[in-house]
């Protein structure tokens, strides 16, 4: 008797569970899983987004062949994206860690600064900030005005093949808020006794940072590195609005090139193939970081 009630109850519980996750599940199936499956299929097809679905033509691996051997712009976009990730992500994390440590000192007004520093990250991915960035680095923009005040030579930053990508990197570094908050949470977990003991032993600030902060924070650094790397490889909005890939394709990031092929050149099959290769690239990068993590990530609990 009791068991049958429990069983019925259990079934009902399931039913209620499905009811509650239903909307999410439906949206996930319709707007994530289905498009993903479709794009996997398109990746092996010659399919123009102007045509109806039945016009897709199976071409095997030809999209991939074209990508790797016959499209020099593809490799340019890979190069630009890696350049961006290699410079923007370490700089952003350094900035985030530095400010998190400043905010962790318990001075007055810390919560105000924490919110103030976080603000750029909330608005950072938005169109509005990208448009503003265009103004700041424009020929008559704020940045050139500041440089002129210092008596340095001005440049057309956004149009210069050597510097345009750095305006995007600067924007990325400015958006350090979310890793900063995570670092801050990590820093608060480190027991102050360690620092006190180190001080008694005569360690200076640098020594404490290297021997206590970095090892104990390494799981958080690891997490931030993975998350930032993934978002870095997918960078789109900033380049789309600020530079549009120009000049000389130096800011033609991978995601922007996918967009251009899919929605401006209507080569949905080719773009889908590129998107799946990006997924593999991200997976490879993440795996490398994971594999090397046991060399440098220190988990306290493991030692026990």
């Amino acid at each position: 008797m009791a068991s049958s009630i429990r069983k019925k109850n259990f079934k009902q519980n399931n039913w209620m569970g499905y009811f509650f996750i239903g909307p999410w599940l439906l949206a996930f199936l319709a707007f994530t899983l289905l498009p993903m499956a479709a794009s996997l299929y398109f990746a092996f097809n010659d399919y123009s987004s102007l045509d109806s679905l039945d016009k897709a033509r199976w071409i095997g691996l030809q999209n991939f062949e074209r990508m790797f051997f016959n499209d020099n712009k593809y490799w340019k976009s890979v190069g630009a994206t890696l350049y961006y990730v290699i410079f923007a992500i370490p700089l952003r994390l350094t900035m985030a860690l530095g400010l998190a440590m400043l905010l962790n000192t318990g001075r007055n007004g810390v919560s105000f600064y924490r919110a103030a520093f976080y603000a750029p990250s909330i608005v950072g991915g938005s169109i509005a900030v990208a448009v503003m960035w265009r103004q700041v680095f424009g020929t008559e923009g704020l940045f050139n005005a500041a440089i002129r005040l210092l008596g340095l030579p001005t440049r057309t930053w956004l149009g210069d093949p050597d510097y345009a990508i750095w305006t995007l990197i600067a924007l990325a570094v400015w958006q350090f808020g979310s890793p900063m908050l995570i670092f801050l949470a990590g820093l608060k977990q480190i027991p102050t006794e360690f620092y006190e003991a180190a001080s008694i032993d005569g360690a200076n600030g640098v020594r404490k940072f290297i021997s206590i902060t970095l090892p104990l924070l390494s799981p958080v650094i690891f997490f931030n590195l993975i998350m930032q790397m993934i978002s870095g490889l997918m960078v789109f909005t900033q380049a789309f609005i600020i530079t549009g890939g120009a000049p000389l394709d130096t800011t033609l990031f991978y995601a922007l090139y996918i967009y251009r092929r899919a929605f401006e050149n209507f080569q949905m099959g080719y773009a889908s193939a590129m998107a799946w290769v990006l997924l593999i690239i991200i997976a490879v990068f993440a795996t490398i970081v994971f594999k090397t993590s046991n060399q440098w990530v220190y988990y306290e609990s493991k030692e026990e």
């Binding site: 680095f137 149009g159 120009a246």
Partner: peptide
């Protein structure tokens, strides 16, 4: 306008 100037200031 140089190409650089054109991209930075007038393109689009």
């Amino acid at each position: 306008p140089s190409r650089s100037e054109d991209l930075a200031s007038f393109d689009g």
